[in-house]
């Protein structure tokens, strides 16, 4: 059984121009992804490839004008958007990327306690304090406002908030960019540890190199559809073990691999 199974998920948005002309804006054009218990699956692609949109769809966060098709299965249960709202925060959690995901006018402690209550924890105050403590943050951080945190501290607060309960699926949306090597590794190690405990982790990133050591599989997406699934150990040398030309082009375009940009027509 898989923790999370996404089959041919498409999302498009209906817009009305000047109130009359109906226009459909495509978002996702066919995403496939599955994560087994104990797995970290990296979802890699350029910005605009639909990675974050996938996260929003899985959490039931799409706006009312979104039209969706395909299947999202959570632990064998086919979840309609309303079911996904029910899972959000308890069974399926989001680990967001930056300090803008914290409310600027509420103290950090109040926000963590609220998250703990939503996650269904019995003692939100104790959970908040211990969640911060586990990430090396003292109790005085509880009384601070987001703008009084350094970038690294804010990210640790986000990790503490996202991983309060015992989720079955963690969707981490770009959790490492901008962090120092050490902090980034701490976040990835924690995600790895949660997976080893039986969680399914989706690691959304455009940083292929950072994702490789902690991931079990790499899913490559481009323009709203998944194009390839590769094993981390295939990303080696000149990329000769990578089957899909787009994946190979992504690998070869990395600075360490010669920053080679694909010739026109090679990828398409």
């Amino acid at each position: 059984m898989t923790r999370l199974q996404i089959e041919d998920l498409t999302v498009s948005f209906v817009q009305y121009e000047r109130g009359l002309r109906r226009r459909v804006v495509p978002g996702l054009a066919g995403m496939d992804l599955d994560v087994a218990p104990g797995e970290v699956v990296a979802l890699v692609g350029a910005s605009g490839a639909g990675k974050s949109l996938l996260a929003h769809a899985v959490l039931g966060l799409l706006p009312p004008n979104a039209v969706e098709s395909g299947r999202v299965v959570v632990d064998g249960f086919e979840a309609a958007p309303a079911d996904r709202r029910r899972f959000a925060g308890r069974d399926v959690v989001l680990l967001p990327q930056s300090v803008t995901y914290l409310d600027p006018v509420a103290p950090v402690g109040r926000q963590i306690r609220r998250a703990a209550r939503l996650a269904g924890l019995a003692d939100p105050a104790a959970a908040a304090a211990s969640a911060l403590h586990r990430r090396g943050l003292g109790a005085e951080v509880l009384g601070r406002y987001p703008h009084e945190l350094s970038g690294g501290m804010a990210r640790r607060v986000l990790v503490a908030m996202a991983l309060l309960g015992r989720p079955r699926i963690i969707i981490a949306d770009e959790p490492t960019p901008g962090l120092q090597q050490e902090s980034a590794e701490a976040v990835l190690d924690e995600l790895r540890a949660r997976a080893d405990d039986g969680c399914g982790v989706v690691l959304i990133t455009h940083d292929l190199v950072a994702a490789l050591p902690v991931s079990d599989r790499i899913v490559i997406c481009e323009e709203g559809r998944t194009v390839d699934v590769a094993a981390p150990q295939d990303f080696t040398g000149d990329g000769e073990r990578l089957r899909h030309p787009y994946t190979r082009a992504l690998w070869r375009a990395l600075p360490a691999n010669g920053l080679r940009l694909p010739a026109v027509g090679e990828v398409a």
Binding site: L61, Y101, R114, L118, M161
Partner: peptide, 13 residues
């Protein structure tokens, strides 16, 4: 439309 409301919604709010 802010990120912090999106995160709160992701927490099940």
């Amino acid at each position: 439309e802010s990120d912090f409301v999106a995160f709160a919604r992701a927490q099940g709010e």
